[in-house]
Computed example of a mutant assay.
Amino acid sequence: MPRYELITKSGFAAQAWRRYDNHAFAATDAVAPLLVQELAKACMSLPIAFLQQGDAFVPHAVQGLEAGRNLFVVNGTWVGPYTPAAYRGYPFALAQGDGDDLHLCIDMDSGLVGAGDGFDQPFFDDAGEAAQPVKDALNFLQQIHNNRAVTKRVCAALAAEDLFQPWPLKVQGPNGERRVDGLFRIDEARLNSLDADALARVQKAGGLPVAYCQLLSMGNIQTLGLIARKLEEVKNRMPEMSDQIDVDGILQRHKSSAPEQDLEPVENDNVVNIAADTGDFDLSAFVKPEKSD
């Protein structure tokens, strides 16, 4: 778990930080929150679902099919084409102060805070003011905070029209089938049947792009099954190659070889197969080529 500490001049004037160079900190996140402003990019490669938090529904990237595992992080490398904004401010975070005050904090257990060689970003400049990269981090996180409020309002408008329904997702593994509970999707049939007044309310609130982005993204759930299968195949058959798996190459080959999809619904589109292939396979398709000297 992160251990965030408030950044103060007295506590951090003699320390520095460095930027993260891998995404190991996100390796156990099966989901990550998304903002409405990033859905158009996220939906092109990430499966998106809504999670219910109290009375609210919040869009999330679905990154794994079991708790504690992010399939888009392989050996510390983010292998998806898009990285959620929620990760891009790390190791910084905001803490709510009195009233509407927001204070910048940093994860002290990140390994990115210290003194001496390797820590090249000071928290404060020679004049005792926050260094520009720290100001930039604060500004970025404040934008995220403000955009979360917008996201909440848009999703509330969708909920007001009863447009969320459970996503009956199932995972097919070597030991049978199991459900993935807690995910919601847009009720496409209800969206298409809204009367003119209801549709106008959703459109005015900015809900239509959110609804269509989520629906468009659902096909990406099969990408998780593909990654899980190939990782398991290499792990089981060639464990010494596990740190050389070329997930990006796998995804590119899969994309280029995938048949054209028609508009007819696929009956088993809500079932994700993660059972590794037990037949012969070409190892060179799953590992990175060795670099020549």
Rank of each mutant, 00 (worst) to 15 (best):
P2Q: 10
Y4H: 11
I7K: 01
I7T: 02
F25Q: 03
A30I: 06
A32E: 10
V36K: 02
Q37A: 15
E38K: 03
K41A: 15
A42W: 05
S45I: 03
I48C: 10
Q52E: 14
F57S: 00
A61M: 05
G64S: 07
G64T: 01
L65E: 04
A67W: 04
N70V: 01
L71R: 12
V73G: 03
W78G: 00
P91K: 08
L94E: 05
G99M: 13
D101S: 13
M108V: 12
G111T: 11
V113T: 12
G114K: 03
D120F: 04
D120C: 05
Q121I: 14
F123N: 01
A127S: 15
A130T: 03
A130D: 01
A131R: 05
Q132A: 15
V134E: 07
K135A: 05
D136G: 06
I144R: 08
I144G: 00
H145M: 02
K152P: 00
A157C: 13
F164Y: 12
Q165M: 14
L169R: 06
V171P: 08
E177R: 09
R178A: 11
D181N: 10
D181C: 03
F184G: 00
I186M: 07
E188N: 09
R190T: 04
A200M: 14
V202E: 06
G206I: 11
L208Q: 06
A211C: 10
C213V: 05
S217K: 03
M218E: 15
G219E: 13
G219D: 11
I221F: 10
I221Y: 03
I221Q: 08
T223K: 09
L224P: 07
G225A: 06
L226N: 01
L226V: 11
A228I: 00
A228P: 02
L231G: 02
E233G: 05
N236W: 01
P239S: 09
P239M: 04
S242C: 05
V247N: 00
G249M: 05
Q261W: 06
L263D: 14
P265Q: 09
D269M: 08
A275I: 02
D282W: 06
D282I: 10
S284G: 08
A285S: 14
V287E: 06
K288N: 13
K291S: 11
S292C: 02
